[in-house]
Amino acid sequence: MTASHARPAAPGRYRNDLVLFMAIAFALSWASWAVAIGIGGSSTKPPTLAFHVFGAFGPLIAALVIRIRRARRGEPVPEHAVRFRPAALGWTPLLLALASALVLGAAFVAHAAGGPAPSLEDAKDVMTTYPGGPVAFLVNILVAGPLAEEPGWRGTAYPRMRASLNRFQVSLILGVIWAVWHMPLFFIDGTVQNQLGVTSPSGVLFAVSAVPMAMLVCYAYERAGVLAAVAVHFATNLTMVLLSVQAPVTQAIVMGVQLIAAVVLLATVRPAGRPVADGPSLPAIPANRGAHVR
């Protein structure tokens, strides 16, 4: 049975898919990260590195399971899944630039409010001193976060949740789930989360920041699908790391700017079109080294 002739999936089917997706994503990620915590040592060095990186792919593996399961049952894609279209190639760089500009602009506002100044030299140091050089750094930022997560959180969970919730509700709920999913990273030595500290103001703000960032990424998905969601996730992580955004005042202002932008964008977005697929399935490419960001 082809997707065009299949009956619409019942709401209960979406709920079952969501439960299975969440169970697989959390089980794989948390089990892998638990091993990394038990082994000890830095997340940038073997053998801890392998379990740290593998844990990031929990959402992608869960998404593949759900997609294979749907295809075997001959079920249609969810009504709110955003298909890949050539227009996405035009939106993607624009959304990437917007996501980076929001963080950069907020960092300058924070500096005016008494926070640390954004430093180009610090950004150069991060890239040039990274093991493997700038290319390895960029590959790690792209793979260990956006590519490993977005086909799952946005490409799979989001459209199924939209069957019964509006985009604001889904964005908020996914943001909270996203924050909880990241919690074990606070206990793995060498990660950005561990450096912040789970009970420190910076650590708490990092966890809370998952909500406005999820709203932005959900907007990108509704606008142009998984590819755009990957771009916004990547640009945000990259800019945050290059600017070393860890001061509470800077984190708070970045969150505020992202929240305002996300609310406005989500209120005005028109989805990219009727779905014909779950979105592009992105391959799980192993990361080289470095801490998983978000």
Rank of each mutant, 00 (worst) to 15 (best):
G74K: 10
G74A: 05
E75Q: 15
E75A: 15
P76G: 03
P76A: 03
V77F: 03
V77Q: 01
V77T: 13
P78R: 08
P78C: 08
E79Y: 14
H80W: 12
H80N: 14
H80Y: 09
A81T: 03
A81D: 00
A81V: 05
A81G: 01
R83Q: 12
F84C: 01
R85G: 05
R85Y: 13
R85I: 09
A87T: 10
A88K: 01
L89D: 02
L89S: 00
G90M: 01
W91G: 01
W91I: 04
T92R: 14
L94C: 10
L95M: 08
L96K: 05
L96A: 11
A97E: 07
A97Q: 03
A97T: 04
L98T: 00
A99Q: 00
A101Q: 08
L102P: 00
V103T: 04
V103N: 00
V103Q: 00
V103F: 08
V103K: 00
L104V: 13
L104Y: 10
L104A: 15
L104N: 08
G105N: 03
A106I: 02
A106F: 02
A106Y: 06
A106D: 00
A107W: 03
A107G: 05
F108R: 10
F108E: 03
F108A: 00
F108M: 09
F108N: 03
V109Q: 07
A110G: 05
H111T: 11
A112Q: 15
A112M: 14
A113F: 11
G114C: 02
G114I: 12
G115Q: 10
G115K: 09
P116R: 12
P118G: 05
S119K: 06
L120M: 09
L120K: 05
E121H: 13
E121L: 05
E121F: 11
D122G: 12
D122V: 13
D122T: 13
D122R: 15
K124V: 15
K124M: 15
K124G: 03
D125R: 10
M127Y: 12
M127C: 05
M127F: 12
T129C: 12
Y130H: 09
Y130L: 02
P131M: 05
G132W: 05
G132I: 10
G133V: 06
G133S: 07
P134K: 08
P134Y: 08
V135S: 06
A136K: 09
F137Y: 14
F137N: 01
L138H: 07
L138T: 00
